[in-house]
Amino acid sequence: MLMTWIWCGLVLCAIGAAMYNGTGAALSAAVATGAQAGVQLAISMAGAICLWSGVGRLLEKIGATGWLSRLLRPVLHRIFPSTKENPALAGHLSGNICANLLGLGNAATPMGIRAARELAKSDTANDELCRLIVLNTASIQLIPANVAAVRAALGCQTPFDILPAVWVTSLCSAGLGLCAAWALGRVWKRD
């Protein structure tokens, strides 16, 4: 239902702005060009998306998540202290984070949900669960394949040149998000 509300809101805003600006003719032309642009973008993105989900499958099968989780173990113990006593939780958590890093969205969510269920003790979110959510909403991805596909589809010659910028940005937002969660966790004790 949420998307219906968003859709209605967007169209309403467009019609309202067109009346205010007197751009009715452009508005009705945009209905056709927008749909066309959707198909064009989808077709030009198709190749890159398929190739990268192939590479994702390869990385999954050769055990790339395993190596990454060994690398990340020290960090994981710091952010989620209860992983020290609970190896199953440590497995789910590192699986979730590593799958996110490799852009394997389909693999990341089920593992993240298992970790969240393991962490949840009552119907109130505890600090570690909040940190898991913040890490997942901050999206740390080594290869942002979908965005690169959009850029390539729009004629960019070097679609992957945003990689360093994306890494720095993701690290900052995940790091500062965790700091905010840590600071808020000290003062926000109830509900």
Partner: peptide, 29 residues
């Protein structure tokens, strides 16, 4: 994996068409 990618694409394309229509309307208006 590429076959999975096609399936994924099939789930994105309809929303891309509908939402890009709204976005183009917002830009043009």
């Amino acid at each position: 994996g590429a076959e999975d990618g096609l399936k994924l694409l099939l789930t994105i394309v309809p929303s891309l068409i509908v939402l890009l229509t709204a976005v183009h309307m917002l830009r043009a208006s």
